[in-house]
């Protein structure tokens, strides 16, 4: 009985926090817009009994999904989101790996402190941190002022409101998600393996490439997924740091909901986004499981 209870907890969690909201969104995506509160029909009227239920289902259709295919905007936004998420994941990996490596190489007594420093930004509000980047990157911002003062450039750079600013924002925000799993993998690495590789004729770099990198592979994969998945649906960063040409599906979604008040189309966008995300999530789960098997 206790066992059953214990097992049911995660499933109840999944049901309450994922499946129920998902089905609500799915239902809205199959509805039609209406000038009402909530702004769609039909709404389920349990008072009408069996006939009401039948009528309710009869009114649901895939019209909104068809609509998404008629306008270029949507598939372009999906594609551009995937591209931005992929590219910023790669950037985060390039920035995060050396940091994680450095942390794992640091003296034992320093490691908790370094870990603390990586997590520290989470202690302030995410919005405030993104706003500070606006202050740094704008034309009169700290970065441009510094570069002009030091004479590297004579005219201020246009960074804010471009995709570059979005990349910077994503890399900055999600860096800890990349660093921590890689660090966990590197910290476990037995130093004598590197020595063995060098003993067998590897240079430092070869030993890194042939031993350290493969053995931190699982950390890299976990980190990439942890960055890619939230980055794909990211809304705050592209709308605050990105420009008018920055096209991301999270932004489109927001505009459908709040500017157009078209909940059904917005829900359809969300459902598709989720379906796109399910592929990497399943891959991620598979990787985690493989890793557990290899270790167990």
């Amino acid at each position: 009985m206790r066992r059953l209870l214990l097992i049911s907890v995660p499933y109840l969690w999944l049901l309450a926090l994922f499946l129920v909201p998902f089905f609500i969104v799915l239902k809205i995506s199959l509805s039609d817009t209406a000038l009402a509160i909530p702004p769609y029909t039909p709404t389920l009227d349990l008072g009408a009994g069996w006939a009401g239920l039948k009528g309710f289902f009869a009114e649901l259709d895939l019209e909104n999904f068809w609509f998404l295919t008629t306008d270029d905007l949507y598939w372009k936004a999906y594609l551009s989101s995937v591209w931005i998420a992929l590219f910023s994941t790669l950037l985060t990996l390039i920035v995060g790996y050396p940091i994680a490596y450095g942390m794992a190489q640091a003296r034992e007594e320093w490691r908790p402190t370094l870990m603390m420093l990586v997590i520290l930004p989470f202690w302030t509000s995410f919005l405030i941190r993104v706003y500070s980047w606006m202050g740094i990157l704008s034309q009169e911002g700290v970065l441009n002022q510094f570069l002009m003062w030091s004479g590297v450039i004579s005219d201020p750079l246009m960074i804010l409101n471009t995709n570059t600013a979005v990349y910077i924002g994503i890399v900055y925000t999600y860096l800890p998600f990349m660093i921590l799993p890689i660090y966990a993998a590197l910290e476990k690495l037995d130093i004598s393996l590197i020595e063995a590789a060098e003993d067998l004729g590897c240079s430092r770099f070869q030993a890194f490439w042939l031993v350290t990198v493969p053995l931190s592979k699982n950390g890299i994969i976990a980190g990439c997924f942890l960055v890619f998945i939230p980055a794909l649906g990211e809304f705050v960063i592209p709308s605050l740091l990105g420009g008018s040409q920055t096209l991301m599906i999270g932004k489109v979604l927001w505009e459908e909901f709040f500017n157009n008040r078209d909940w059904p189309v917005a829900s359809a966008v969300a459902v598709i986004l989720l379906l796109i995300l399910i592929i990497p999530i399943i891959l991620f789960q598979r990787n985690e499981q493989k890793q557990r098997e290899a270790e167990g």
Partner: peptide, 15 residues
């Protein structure tokens, strides 16, 4: 890596 010496580690250190 430049020494003509190979070592078998006490802990084996297999990859």
């Amino acid at each position: 890596n430049k020494r003509a010496v190979n070592m078998m580690f006490q802990s084996y250190a297999l990859f």
